[in-house]
Write a protein that binds this DNA or RNA. Structure first.
Lengths: 272, 272
DNA sequence: CTCTACTGCGTAAGTTATACGCAGTACTAC
DNA sequence: GTAGTACTGCGTATAACTTACGCAGTAGAG
Protein backbone atom coordinates (compact mmCIF):
# COMPACT_ATOMS: atom_id res chain seq x y z
CA UNK A 1 0.00 0.00 0.00
CA UNK A 2 1.17 3.47 -0.78
CA UNK A 3 2.89 4.71 2.33
CA UNK A 4 3.48 8.39 2.40
CA UNK A 5 7.18 8.69 1.74
CA UNK A 6 7.32 11.53 -0.72
CA UNK A 7 8.45 15.05 -0.31
CA UNK A 8 5.15 16.26 -1.59
CA UNK A 9 4.24 19.52 -0.05
CA UNK A 10 0.49 19.38 -0.37
CA UNK A 11 -1.13 16.03 0.19
CA UNK A 12 -4.64 17.38 -0.08
CA UNK A 13 -7.82 15.40 -0.06
CA UNK A 14 -8.75 13.69 -3.27
CA UNK A 15 -11.69 15.27 -5.07
CA UNK A 16 -15.07 13.78 -4.27
CA UNK A 17 -15.50 12.26 -7.69
CA UNK A 18 -15.55 13.80 -11.09
CA UNK A 19 -16.14 17.46 -10.74
CA UNK A 20 -17.40 19.65 -7.95
CA UNK A 21 -19.96 18.69 -5.40
CA UNK A 22 -23.55 18.50 -6.51
CA UNK A 23 -26.36 20.22 -4.77
CA UNK A 24 -29.17 19.11 -7.01
CA UNK A 25 -29.70 15.73 -5.47
CA UNK A 26 -29.85 14.25 -8.91
CA UNK A 27 -28.10 10.99 -9.71
CA UNK A 28 -24.58 11.82 -10.83
CA UNK A 29 -25.05 10.49 -14.34
CA UNK A 30 -28.08 12.62 -14.86
CA UNK A 31 -26.29 15.71 -13.70
CA UNK A 32 -23.48 15.03 -16.08
CA UNK A 33 -25.84 14.43 -18.95
CA UNK A 34 -27.49 17.79 -18.50
CA UNK A 35 -24.16 19.52 -18.29
CA UNK A 36 -24.61 20.66 -14.74
CA UNK A 37 -21.39 20.50 -12.72
CA UNK A 38 -19.74 23.81 -13.20
CA UNK A 39 -16.10 23.33 -13.98
CA UNK A 40 -13.52 25.38 -12.12
CA UNK A 41 -10.90 27.35 -13.91
CA UNK A 42 -7.78 26.72 -11.93
CA UNK A 43 -5.29 23.90 -12.45
CA UNK A 44 -3.70 22.48 -15.59
CA UNK A 45 -5.44 22.47 -18.93
CA UNK A 46 -7.67 19.44 -19.26
CA UNK A 47 -6.53 16.89 -21.72
CA UNK A 48 -9.87 15.42 -22.60
CA UNK A 49 -13.48 16.41 -22.73
CA UNK A 50 -16.52 14.53 -21.60
CA UNK A 51 -18.03 14.34 -25.09
CA UNK A 52 -14.78 12.94 -26.43
CA UNK A 53 -14.86 10.18 -23.87
CA UNK A 54 -18.49 9.36 -24.44
CA UNK A 55 -17.98 9.27 -28.18
CA UNK A 56 -15.06 6.95 -27.74
CA UNK A 57 -17.22 4.71 -25.62
CA UNK A 58 -19.89 4.56 -28.25
CA UNK A 59 -17.32 3.88 -30.90
CA UNK A 60 -16.05 0.90 -28.96
CA UNK A 61 -19.56 -0.35 -28.25
CA UNK A 62 -20.55 -0.13 -31.88
CA UNK A 63 -17.52 -1.83 -33.25
CA UNK A 64 -16.76 -4.38 -30.55
CA UNK A 65 -19.93 -4.69 -28.56
CA UNK A 66 -20.93 -3.54 -25.12
CA UNK A 67 -18.82 -6.21 -23.53
CA UNK A 68 -15.69 -4.60 -24.87
CA UNK A 69 -16.47 -1.31 -23.20
CA UNK A 70 -14.17 -1.20 -20.23
CA UNK A 71 -12.60 1.87 -18.74
CA UNK A 72 -9.25 0.70 -19.96
CA UNK A 73 -10.43 0.06 -23.47
CA UNK A 74 -12.11 3.43 -23.77
CA UNK A 75 -9.08 5.20 -22.38
CA UNK A 76 -6.86 3.38 -24.85
CA UNK A 77 -9.17 4.52 -27.61
CA UNK A 78 -8.24 8.05 -26.63
CA UNK A 79 -4.60 7.42 -25.94
CA UNK A 80 -5.18 8.30 -22.31
CA UNK A 81 -4.70 6.29 -19.16
CA UNK A 82 -7.49 4.36 -17.54
CA UNK A 83 -7.68 6.43 -14.43
CA UNK A 84 -7.74 9.74 -16.19
CA UNK A 85 -11.30 9.03 -17.26
CA UNK A 86 -12.39 9.25 -13.66
CA UNK A 87 -11.74 12.96 -13.74
CA UNK A 88 -14.66 13.24 -16.13
CA UNK A 89 -16.93 10.44 -15.12
CA UNK A 90 -17.65 9.25 -11.63
CA UNK A 91 -18.16 5.60 -12.48
CA UNK A 92 -18.49 3.30 -15.39
CA UNK A 93 -22.26 3.27 -15.13
CA UNK A 94 -22.25 6.97 -15.60
CA UNK A 95 -20.28 6.58 -18.79
CA UNK A 96 -22.77 4.04 -20.02
CA UNK A 97 -25.67 6.35 -19.27
CA UNK A 98 -24.00 9.11 -21.19
CA UNK A 99 -23.27 6.79 -24.07
CA UNK A 100 -26.92 5.88 -24.19
CA UNK A 101 -27.97 9.47 -24.31
CA UNK A 102 -25.53 10.23 -27.07
CA UNK A 103 -26.59 7.27 -29.15
CA UNK A 104 -30.26 8.00 -28.69
CA UNK A 105 -29.65 11.37 -30.18
CA UNK A 106 -32.12 14.09 -30.88
CA UNK A 107 -35.34 12.70 -32.32
CA UNK A 108 -36.68 13.98 -35.61
CA UNK A 109 -39.07 16.86 -35.18
CA UNK A 110 -42.64 15.65 -34.53
CA UNK A 111 -45.38 16.58 -36.95
CA UNK A 112 -48.62 16.38 -34.99
CA UNK A 113 -50.62 17.07 -38.08
CA UNK A 114 -50.56 13.45 -39.05
CA UNK A 115 -52.61 12.23 -36.09
CA UNK A 116 -51.67 10.23 -33.07
CA UNK A 117 -51.67 6.83 -34.67
CA UNK A 118 -49.43 7.64 -37.55
CA UNK A 119 -47.26 9.64 -35.22
CA UNK A 120 -46.80 6.91 -32.67
CA UNK A 121 -46.21 4.39 -35.38
CA UNK A 122 -43.44 6.51 -36.71
CA UNK A 123 -42.10 7.00 -33.22
CA UNK A 124 -41.98 3.27 -32.66
CA UNK A 125 -40.37 2.69 -36.01
CA UNK A 126 -37.75 5.34 -35.41
CA UNK A 127 -36.90 3.90 -32.03
CA UNK A 128 -36.69 0.45 -33.50
CA UNK A 129 -34.37 1.62 -36.23
CA UNK A 130 -32.20 3.26 -33.63
CA UNK A 131 -31.95 0.08 -31.60
CA UNK A 132 -31.11 -1.97 -34.64
CA UNK A 133 -28.37 0.46 -35.47
CA UNK A 134 -26.98 0.51 -31.96
CA UNK A 135 -27.74 -2.97 -30.86
CA UNK A 136 -25.37 -2.65 -27.95
CA UNK A 137 -28.05 -0.52 -26.30
CA UNK A 138 -30.21 -3.58 -26.02
CA UNK A 139 -27.58 -5.11 -23.82
CA UNK A 140 -27.59 -2.28 -21.32
CA UNK A 141 -29.71 -3.01 -18.32
CA UNK A 142 -32.18 -0.21 -17.84
CA UNK A 143 -32.30 0.69 -14.21
CA UNK A 144 -34.14 3.95 -14.02
CA UNK A 145 -36.85 5.93 -15.76
CA UNK A 146 -35.62 7.99 -18.69
CA UNK A 147 -34.11 11.23 -17.46
CA UNK A 148 -31.34 12.27 -19.80
CA UNK A 149 -31.89 15.11 -22.26
CA UNK A 150 -32.35 13.10 -25.40
CA UNK A 151 -34.50 10.55 -23.68
CA UNK A 152 -36.73 13.34 -22.54
CA UNK A 153 -36.77 14.75 -26.03
CA UNK A 154 -38.06 11.46 -27.37
CA UNK A 155 -40.64 11.38 -24.64
CA UNK A 156 -41.71 14.87 -25.53
CA UNK A 157 -41.86 13.89 -29.14
CA UNK A 158 -44.22 11.03 -28.43
CA UNK A 159 -46.33 13.05 -26.05
CA UNK A 160 -46.82 15.67 -28.70
CA UNK A 161 -48.63 13.17 -30.84
CA UNK A 162 -51.02 12.51 -27.99
CA UNK A 163 -51.62 16.15 -27.27
CA UNK A 164 -54.99 16.38 -28.94
CA UNK A 165 -56.39 13.25 -27.41
CA UNK A 166 -58.49 13.32 -24.28
CA UNK A 167 -56.18 11.03 -22.37
CA UNK A 168 -55.07 12.11 -18.94
CA UNK A 169 -51.45 13.00 -18.40
CA UNK A 170 -50.89 9.83 -16.53
CA UNK A 171 -52.38 7.79 -19.33
CA UNK A 172 -50.22 9.51 -21.88
CA UNK A 173 -47.09 8.79 -19.93
CA UNK A 174 -48.05 5.19 -19.41
CA UNK A 175 -48.75 4.88 -23.09
CA UNK A 176 -45.37 6.13 -24.14
CA UNK A 177 -43.58 3.97 -21.63
CA UNK A 178 -45.54 0.95 -22.73
CA UNK A 179 -44.80 1.63 -26.35
CA UNK A 180 -41.09 2.19 -25.99
CA UNK A 181 -40.83 -0.79 -23.71
CA UNK A 182 -42.56 -2.89 -26.29
CA UNK A 183 -40.24 -1.78 -29.03
CA UNK A 184 -37.24 -2.53 -26.89
CA UNK A 185 -38.54 -5.97 -26.00
CA UNK A 186 -39.34 -7.10 -29.49
CA UNK A 187 -36.18 -5.73 -30.97
CA UNK A 188 -34.12 -7.21 -28.20
CA UNK A 189 -35.65 -10.62 -28.57
CA UNK A 190 -35.01 -10.53 -32.25
CA UNK A 191 -31.43 -9.48 -31.72
CA UNK A 192 -30.88 -12.21 -29.15
CA UNK A 193 -32.18 -14.87 -31.46
CA UNK A 194 -30.06 -13.67 -34.30
CA UNK A 195 -26.99 -13.38 -32.13
CA UNK A 196 -27.39 -16.78 -30.55
CA UNK A 197 -27.83 -18.41 -33.90
CA UNK A 198 -24.99 -16.53 -35.45
CA UNK A 199 -22.79 -17.67 -32.64
CA UNK A 200 -23.87 -21.22 -33.40
CA UNK A 201 -22.49 -20.63 -36.82
CA UNK A 202 -25.21 -20.09 -39.32
CA UNK A 203 -26.19 -17.09 -41.31
CA UNK A 204 -28.80 -14.81 -39.83
CA UNK A 205 -31.58 -16.09 -42.02
CA UNK A 206 -30.85 -19.74 -41.63
CA UNK A 207 -30.33 -19.22 -37.95
CA UNK A 208 -33.77 -17.91 -37.31
CA UNK A 209 -35.21 -20.83 -39.14
CA UNK A 210 -33.42 -23.32 -36.97
CA UNK A 211 -34.56 -22.00 -33.64
CA UNK A 212 -37.78 -23.93 -33.69
CA UNK A 213 -35.87 -27.15 -34.01
CA UNK A 214 -34.37 -26.59 -30.65
CA UNK A 215 -37.84 -26.31 -29.21
CA UNK A 216 -38.85 -29.47 -30.93
CA UNK A 217 -36.09 -31.34 -29.16
CA UNK A 218 -37.27 -30.34 -25.79
CA UNK A 219 -41.00 -29.80 -25.79
CA UNK A 220 -43.15 -32.88 -25.34
CA UNK A 221 -46.36 -32.25 -27.31
CA UNK A 222 -48.30 -34.48 -24.94
CA UNK A 223 -47.40 -32.41 -21.96
CA UNK A 224 -47.53 -29.06 -23.76
CA UNK A 225 -50.13 -29.49 -26.49
CA UNK A 226 -50.60 -25.84 -27.42
CA UNK A 227 -46.91 -25.15 -27.55
CA UNK A 228 -46.46 -28.37 -29.45
CA UNK A 229 -48.93 -27.21 -32.04
CA UNK A 230 -46.97 -24.02 -32.57
CA UNK A 231 -43.79 -25.95 -33.05
CA UNK A 232 -45.41 -28.41 -35.42
CA UNK A 233 -46.80 -25.54 -37.44
CA UNK A 234 -43.34 -24.12 -37.74
CA UNK A 235 -44.28 -20.92 -35.98
CA UNK A 236 -41.14 -20.95 -33.88
CA UNK A 237 -39.05 -21.49 -36.93
CA UNK A 238 -39.68 -18.38 -38.83
CA UNK A 239 -40.85 -16.07 -36.12
CA UNK A 240 -42.93 -14.75 -38.95
CA UNK A 241 -40.24 -12.38 -40.07
CA UNK A 242 -39.17 -9.84 -37.50
CA UNK A 243 -41.01 -6.93 -39.01
CA UNK A 244 -44.31 -8.72 -39.01
CA UNK A 245 -43.84 -9.66 -35.41
CA UNK A 246 -43.09 -6.06 -34.60
CA UNK A 247 -46.05 -4.72 -36.48
CA UNK A 248 -48.46 -7.20 -35.00
CA UNK A 249 -47.84 -6.15 -31.42
CA UNK A 250 -47.66 -2.51 -32.35
CA UNK A 251 -51.00 -2.80 -34.08
CA UNK A 252 -52.60 -4.42 -31.07
CA UNK A 253 -51.33 -1.77 -28.71
CA UNK A 254 -52.45 1.07 -30.93
CA UNK A 255 -55.84 -0.55 -31.46
CA UNK A 256 -56.34 -0.77 -27.75
CA UNK A 257 -55.23 2.77 -27.33
CA UNK A 258 -57.49 3.92 -30.10
CA UNK A 259 -60.49 2.35 -28.43
CA UNK A 260 -59.80 4.34 -25.33
CA UNK A 261 -59.17 7.55 -27.19
CA UNK A 262 -62.42 7.19 -29.08
CA UNK A 263 -64.35 6.37 -25.95
CA UNK A 264 -62.97 9.44 -24.29
CA UNK A 265 -63.91 11.72 -27.11
CA UNK A 266 -67.59 11.04 -27.25
CA UNK A 267 -69.33 10.50 -23.95
CA UNK A 268 -67.56 13.14 -21.96
CA UNK A 269 -67.78 16.87 -22.27
CA UNK A 270 -64.47 17.66 -20.71
CA UNK A 271 -63.44 20.25 -23.26
CA UNK A 272 -64.18 21.54 -26.68
CA UNK B 1 1.67 -21.97 -12.57
CA UNK B 2 1.19 -25.46 -11.26
CA UNK B 3 4.18 -27.36 -12.45
CA UNK B 4 3.78 -31.06 -12.40
CA UNK B 5 5.80 -32.17 -9.43
CA UNK B 6 3.56 -34.80 -7.95
CA UNK B 7 3.69 -38.52 -8.01
CA UNK B 8 0.28 -38.62 -9.57
CA UNK B 9 -0.07 -41.58 -11.81
CA UNK B 10 -2.93 -40.44 -14.01
CA UNK B 11 -2.86 -36.88 -15.24
CA UNK B 12 -5.86 -37.26 -17.48
CA UNK B 13 -7.64 -34.58 -19.44
CA UNK B 14 -10.04 -32.40 -17.51
CA UNK B 15 -13.70 -33.08 -18.31
CA UNK B 16 -15.19 -30.90 -21.00
CA UNK B 17 -17.40 -28.99 -18.62
CA UNK B 18 -20.01 -30.16 -16.21
CA UNK B 19 -21.13 -33.57 -17.25
CA UNK B 20 -20.75 -35.63 -20.38
CA UNK B 21 -20.69 -34.31 -23.88
CA UNK B 22 -23.94 -33.12 -25.37
CA UNK B 23 -25.24 -34.22 -28.70
CA UNK B 24 -28.44 -32.24 -28.72
CA UNK B 25 -26.96 -28.99 -29.89
CA UNK B 26 -28.95 -27.19 -27.25
CA UNK B 27 -27.38 -24.43 -25.20
CA UNK B 28 -25.79 -26.01 -22.14
CA UNK B 29 -28.08 -24.28 -19.68
CA UNK B 30 -31.13 -25.52 -21.47
CA UNK B 31 -29.86 -29.05 -21.48
CA UNK B 32 -29.21 -28.88 -17.80
CA UNK B 33 -32.63 -27.45 -17.11
CA UNK B 34 -34.36 -30.30 -18.85
CA UNK B 35 -32.28 -32.85 -17.02
CA UNK B 36 -30.57 -34.14 -20.10
CA UNK B 37 -26.93 -35.00 -19.48
CA UNK B 38 -26.90 -38.57 -18.32
CA UNK B 39 -24.66 -38.92 -15.34
CA UNK B 40 -22.12 -41.72 -15.28
CA UNK B 41 -21.93 -44.09 -12.39
CA UNK B 42 -18.27 -44.48 -11.77
CA UNK B 43 -16.14 -42.32 -9.48
CA UNK B 44 -16.69 -41.10 -5.95
CA UNK B 45 -20.10 -40.35 -4.55
CA UNK B 46 -21.14 -36.83 -5.46
CA UNK B 47 -21.30 -34.44 -2.61
CA UNK B 48 -23.88 -32.09 -4.00
CA UNK B 49 -26.80 -32.12 -6.38
CA UNK B 50 -27.72 -29.61 -9.05
CA UNK B 51 -31.04 -28.75 -7.38
CA UNK B 52 -29.26 -28.10 -4.12
CA UNK B 53 -26.95 -25.65 -5.80
CA UNK B 54 -29.70 -23.90 -7.67
CA UNK B 55 -31.77 -23.61 -4.53
CA UNK B 56 -28.82 -22.15 -2.71
CA UNK B 57 -28.40 -19.64 -5.50
CA UNK B 58 -32.00 -18.57 -5.27
CA UNK B 59 -31.73 -18.31 -1.52
CA UNK B 60 -28.81 -15.94 -1.87
CA UNK B 61 -30.53 -13.93 -4.57
CA UNK B 62 -33.67 -13.55 -2.52
CA UNK B 63 -31.98 -12.54 0.66
CA UNK B 64 -29.04 -10.53 -0.63
CA UNK B 65 -29.91 -9.64 -4.18
CA UNK B 66 -28.64 -10.79 -7.51
CA UNK B 67 -25.42 -8.90 -7.05
CA UNK B 68 -24.50 -11.11 -4.13
CA UNK B 69 -24.78 -14.25 -6.22
CA UNK B 70 -21.21 -15.21 -6.93
CA UNK B 71 -19.89 -18.70 -7.33
CA UNK B 72 -18.03 -18.30 -4.09
CA UNK B 73 -21.01 -17.06 -2.19
CA UNK B 74 -23.24 -19.85 -3.41
CA UNK B 75 -20.61 -22.44 -2.63
CA UNK B 76 -20.21 -21.03 0.86
CA UNK B 77 -23.96 -21.28 1.30
CA UNK B 78 -23.54 -25.01 0.81
CA UNK B 79 -20.34 -25.40 2.75
CA UNK B 80 -18.58 -26.42 -0.43
CA UNK B 81 -15.68 -24.89 -2.27
CA UNK B 82 -16.10 -22.49 -5.12
CA UNK B 83 -14.69 -24.72 -7.78
CA UNK B 84 -16.73 -27.74 -6.84
CA UNK B 85 -19.78 -26.05 -8.31
CA UNK B 86 -18.26 -26.32 -11.74
CA UNK B 87 -18.76 -30.07 -11.61
CA UNK B 88 -22.48 -29.36 -11.78
CA UNK B 89 -22.72 -26.20 -13.77
CA UNK B 90 -20.66 -25.19 -16.73
CA UNK B 91 -20.66 -21.48 -16.08
CA UNK B 92 -22.24 -18.91 -13.88
CA UNK B 93 -24.74 -17.95 -16.52
CA UNK B 94 -25.98 -21.47 -16.55
CA UNK B 95 -26.56 -21.29 -12.82
CA UNK B 96 -28.51 -18.10 -13.28
CA UNK B 97 -30.67 -19.67 -15.96
CA UNK B 98 -31.43 -22.57 -13.71
CA UNK B 99 -32.22 -20.24 -10.85
CA UNK B 100 -34.67 -18.44 -13.05
CA UNK B 101 -36.41 -21.62 -13.99
CA UNK B 102 -36.65 -22.72 -10.40
CA UNK B 103 -38.02 -19.40 -9.24
CA UNK B 104 -40.53 -19.20 -12.04
CA UNK B 105 -41.91 -22.48 -10.84
CA UNK B 106 -44.81 -24.43 -12.18
CA UNK B 107 -47.70 -22.14 -13.04
CA UNK B 108 -51.12 -22.73 -11.55
CA UNK B 109 -53.30 -24.95 -13.69
CA UNK B 110 -55.11 -22.96 -16.38
CA UNK B 111 -58.88 -22.91 -16.43
CA UNK B 112 -59.88 -22.07 -20.00
CA UNK B 113 -63.52 -21.94 -18.99
CA UNK B 114 -63.18 -18.37 -17.90
CA UNK B 115 -62.44 -16.99 -21.35
CA UNK B 116 -59.32 -15.58 -22.82
CA UNK B 117 -59.49 -12.15 -21.30
CA UNK B 118 -59.95 -13.23 -17.74
CA UNK B 119 -57.37 -15.91 -18.29
CA UNK B 120 -54.71 -13.65 -19.66
CA UNK B 121 -55.43 -11.10 -16.97
CA UNK B 122 -54.83 -13.73 -14.39
CA UNK B 123 -51.72 -14.86 -16.20
CA UNK B 124 -50.33 -11.35 -16.19
CA UNK B 125 -51.21 -10.88 -12.57
CA UNK B 126 -49.60 -14.15 -11.57
CA UNK B 127 -46.44 -13.28 -13.43
CA UNK B 128 -46.37 -9.88 -11.87
CA UNK B 129 -46.77 -11.34 -8.40
CA UNK B 130 -43.95 -13.71 -9.12
CA UNK B 131 -41.65 -10.91 -10.17
CA UNK B 132 -42.51 -8.85 -7.15
CA UNK B 133 -41.70 -11.81 -4.97
CA UNK B 134 -38.43 -12.54 -6.72
CA UNK B 135 -37.40 -9.09 -7.70
CA UNK B 136 -33.87 -10.27 -8.39
CA UNK B 137 -35.26 -11.80 -11.57
CA UNK B 138 -35.85 -8.33 -12.90
CA UNK B 139 -32.14 -7.73 -12.69
CA UNK B 140 -31.24 -10.68 -14.85
CA UNK B 141 -30.63 -9.73 -18.43
CA UNK B 142 -32.78 -11.87 -20.65
CA UNK B 143 -30.75 -13.04 -23.55
CA UNK B 144 -32.75 -15.74 -25.22
CA UNK B 145 -36.32 -16.80 -25.87
CA UNK B 146 -37.87 -18.81 -23.06
CA UNK B 147 -36.80 -22.43 -23.31
CA UNK B 148 -36.58 -23.90 -19.84
CA UNK B 149 -39.29 -26.26 -18.63
CA UNK B 150 -41.16 -23.92 -16.37
CA UNK B 151 -40.95 -21.07 -18.81
CA UNK B 152 -42.51 -23.32 -21.40
CA UNK B 153 -45.15 -24.34 -18.91
CA UNK B 154 -46.13 -20.72 -18.42
CA UNK B 155 -46.19 -20.23 -22.15
CA UNK B 156 -48.41 -23.25 -22.52
CA UNK B 157 -50.63 -21.94 -19.78
CA UNK B 158 -51.13 -18.65 -21.56
CA UNK B 159 -51.62 -20.29 -24.95
CA UNK B 160 -54.34 -22.43 -23.50
CA UNK B 161 -56.42 -19.37 -22.82
CA UNK B 162 -56.11 -18.40 -26.45
CA UNK B 163 -57.01 -21.82 -27.74
CA UNK B 164 -60.57 -21.04 -28.67
CA UNK B 165 -59.80 -17.82 -30.45
CA UNK B 166 -59.30 -17.65 -34.18
CA UNK B 167 -55.83 -16.22 -33.90
CA UNK B 168 -53.07 -17.85 -35.87
CA UNK B 169 -50.35 -19.67 -34.03
CA UNK B 170 -47.93 -16.94 -34.78
CA UNK B 171 -50.30 -14.34 -33.42
CA UNK B 172 -50.83 -16.31 -30.26
CA UNK B 173 -47.14 -16.56 -29.64
CA UNK B 174 -46.59 -12.90 -30.32
CA UNK B 175 -49.39 -12.09 -27.95
CA UNK B 176 -47.96 -14.04 -25.09
CA UNK B 177 -44.50 -12.65 -25.61
CA UNK B 178 -45.88 -9.15 -25.77
CA UNK B 179 -47.85 -9.65 -22.63
CA UNK B 180 -45.11 -11.16 -20.55
CA UNK B 181 -42.68 -8.58 -21.81
CA UNK B 182 -45.05 -5.86 -20.79
CA UNK B 183 -45.44 -7.27 -17.32
CA UNK B 184 -41.72 -7.50 -16.93
CA UNK B 185 -41.21 -3.95 -18.10
CA UNK B 186 -43.76 -2.32 -15.87
CA UNK B 187 -42.82 -4.30 -12.84
CA UNK B 188 -39.17 -3.65 -13.46
CA UNK B 189 -39.64 0.06 -13.85
CA UNK B 190 -41.61 0.15 -10.67
CA UNK B 191 -38.95 -1.81 -8.84
CA UNK B 192 -36.21 0.45 -10.16
CA UNK B 193 -37.96 3.55 -9.01
CA UNK B 194 -38.60 2.13 -5.60
CA UNK B 195 -35.05 0.86 -5.28
CA UNK B 196 -33.46 4.12 -6.40
CA UNK B 197 -35.54 6.09 -4.01
CA UNK B 198 -34.99 3.70 -1.16
CA UNK B 199 -31.29 4.01 -1.74
CA UNK B 200 -31.68 7.76 -1.54
CA UNK B 201 -33.01 7.17 1.90
CA UNK B 202 -36.71 7.56 1.98
CA UNK B 203 -39.48 5.11 2.54
CA UNK B 204 -40.97 3.44 -0.48
CA UNK B 205 -44.07 5.59 -0.52
CA UNK B 206 -42.37 8.89 0.02
CA UNK B 207 -39.74 7.90 -2.49
CA UNK B 208 -42.12 7.43 -5.32
CA UNK B 209 -43.63 10.78 -4.62
CA UNK B 210 -40.32 12.51 -4.87
CA UNK B 211 -39.33 11.24 -8.24
CA UNK B 212 -41.17 13.90 -10.10
CA UNK B 213 -39.21 16.56 -8.33
CA UNK B 214 -36.07 15.33 -9.96
CA UNK B 215 -37.69 15.78 -13.32
CA UNK B 216 -38.74 19.25 -12.37
CA UNK B 217 -35.15 20.19 -11.73
CA UNK B 218 -34.05 19.20 -15.14
CA UNK B 219 -36.86 19.63 -17.62
CA UNK B 220 -37.35 23.08 -19.04
CA UNK B 221 -41.08 23.48 -19.72
CA UNK B 222 -40.38 25.87 -22.54
CA UNK B 223 -38.31 23.37 -24.40
CA UNK B 224 -40.42 20.36 -23.45
CA UNK B 225 -43.95 21.67 -23.04
CA UNK B 226 -45.81 18.37 -22.99
CA UNK B 227 -43.41 16.79 -20.57
CA UNK B 228 -43.52 19.96 -18.52
CA UNK B 229 -47.26 19.70 -18.26
CA UNK B 230 -46.99 16.20 -16.92
CA UNK B 231 -44.54 17.30 -14.31
CA UNK B 232 -46.62 20.30 -13.34
CA UNK B 233 -49.63 18.07 -12.98
CA UNK B 234 -47.70 15.86 -10.64
CA UNK B 235 -48.04 12.86 -12.88
CA UNK B 236 -44.44 11.88 -12.43
CA UNK B 237 -44.74 12.19 -8.71
CA UNK B 238 -47.21 9.53 -7.98
CA UNK B 239 -46.87 7.35 -11.02
CA UNK B 240 -50.54 6.87 -10.35
CA UNK B 241 -49.95 4.01 -7.98
CA UNK B 242 -48.15 1.05 -9.47
CA UNK B 243 -51.19 -1.15 -9.78
CA UNK B 244 -53.11 1.42 -11.75
CA UNK B 245 -50.20 1.85 -14.07
CA UNK B 246 -50.04 -1.88 -14.55
CA UNK B 247 -53.74 -2.25 -15.16
CA UNK B 248 -53.86 0.60 -17.61
CA UNK B 249 -51.38 -0.91 -20.00
CA UNK B 250 -52.76 -4.36 -19.54
CA UNK B 251 -56.22 -3.09 -20.36
CA UNK B 252 -55.02 -1.41 -23.52
CA UNK B 253 -53.23 -4.49 -24.72
CA UNK B 254 -56.18 -6.74 -24.05
CA UNK B 255 -58.55 -4.29 -25.69
CA UNK B 256 -56.47 -4.29 -28.79
CA UNK B 257 -56.28 -8.02 -28.75
CA UNK B 258 -60.01 -8.29 -28.22
CA UNK B 259 -60.68 -6.20 -31.28
CA UNK B 260 -58.68 -8.58 -33.38
CA UNK B 261 -60.25 -11.65 -31.86
CA UNK B 262 -63.72 -10.29 -32.51
CA UNK B 263 -62.85 -9.33 -36.03
CA UNK B 264 -61.58 -12.79 -36.68
CA UNK B 265 -64.63 -14.48 -35.36
CA UNK B 266 -67.24 -12.85 -37.56
CA UNK B 267 -66.22 -12.21 -41.12
CA UNK B 268 -64.33 -15.40 -41.69
CA UNK B 269 -65.66 -18.91 -41.89
CA UNK B 270 -62.51 -20.64 -40.87
CA UNK B 271 -64.17 -23.02 -38.45
CA UNK B 272 -67.34 -23.61 -36.52
C1' DC C 1 -7.25 -56.22 -6.97
C1' DT C 2 -6.34 -53.25 -10.48
C1' DC C 3 -7.91 -49.92 -13.63
C1' DT C 4 -9.75 -45.72 -14.52
C1' DA C 5 -13.54 -42.58 -14.82
C1' DC C 6 -14.88 -39.91 -11.83
C1' DT C 7 -14.94 -36.65 -7.45
C1' DG C 8 -13.93 -32.25 -4.60
C1' DC C 9 -11.10 -28.59 -4.50
C1' DG C 10 -6.48 -25.83 -4.04
C1' DT C 11 -3.87 -22.78 -6.83
C1' DA C 12 -3.35 -19.44 -9.89
C1' DA C 13 -4.31 -16.64 -13.91
C1' DG C 14 -6.77 -13.10 -16.15
C1' DT C 15 -10.25 -9.19 -16.01
C1' DT C 16 -12.29 -5.40 -14.07
C1' DA C 17 -13.55 -1.29 -11.49
C1' DT C 18 -11.81 2.01 -8.79
C1' DA C 19 -9.45 4.21 -4.21
C1' DC C 20 -5.44 6.82 -3.21
C1' DG C 21 -2.06 9.94 -3.57
C1' DC C 22 2.00 11.90 -6.13
C1' DA C 23 4.09 15.09 -9.16
C1' DG C 24 3.33 18.65 -11.98
C1' DT C 25 0.51 22.88 -13.95
C1' DA C 26 -1.56 27.28 -14.29
C1' DC C 27 -4.69 30.62 -12.34
C1' DT C 28 -5.05 34.16 -8.36
C1' DA C 29 -3.52 37.23 -5.02
C1' DC C 30 -0.15 39.88 -3.51
C1' DG D 1 7.56 38.30 -9.82
C1' DT D 2 6.44 34.93 -6.42
C1' DA D 3 3.77 32.06 -3.49
C1' DG D 4 -0.26 29.55 -2.72
C1' DT D 5 -3.40 26.33 -4.15
C1' DA D 6 -6.91 24.06 -6.80
C1' DC D 7 -6.65 21.55 -10.08
C1' DT D 8 -4.66 17.86 -13.74
C1' DG D 9 -3.15 13.14 -15.57
C1' DC D 10 -2.01 8.90 -14.12
C1' DG D 11 0.91 5.04 -11.68
C1' DT D 12 0.18 1.83 -8.13
C1' DA D 13 -2.46 -1.17 -5.65
C1' DT D 14 -6.66 -3.52 -4.07
C1' DA D 15 -10.60 -6.07 -4.06
C1' DA D 16 -13.86 -8.86 -6.39
C1' DC D 17 -14.75 -12.20 -9.62
C1' DT D 18 -14.88 -16.10 -13.03
C1' DT D 19 -12.74 -19.89 -14.38
C1' DA D 20 -8.66 -23.06 -16.35
C1' DC D 21 -5.82 -26.66 -14.69
C1' DG D 22 -4.41 -30.47 -12.47
C1' DC D 23 -3.75 -33.21 -8.15
C1' DA D 24 -5.02 -36.56 -4.82
C1' DG D 25 -8.28 -39.54 -3.63
C1' DT D 26 -12.66 -42.75 -4.41
C1' DA D 27 -15.43 -46.46 -5.97
C1' DG D 28 -17.66 -49.19 -9.63
C1' DA D 29 -16.11 -52.48 -13.50
C1' DG D 30 -13.63 -56.33 -14.96
Amino acid sequence: MGKRGGTGSQGGQPPETAGPKSTTGLPPSIEAAWGLRERPTKGPRRGLTLPQIVEAGVRVAVSEGLGAVSMGRVAAELGASTMSLYRYVSAKDELIDLMMDLAIGVPPEPDPGQGWRAGLTWFAQAYRDLLLQHSWMLRVRISAPPMTPNQIAWLEYALTYLRDTALTGSEKLSTVLMLSGYVRNVTGLEADITAAALAAGSTAEAAMLSYGQLYAKVVDPARFPETGKLIADGVMDQEDLPDNEFNFGLGRILDGLGALIDARREPSSEET
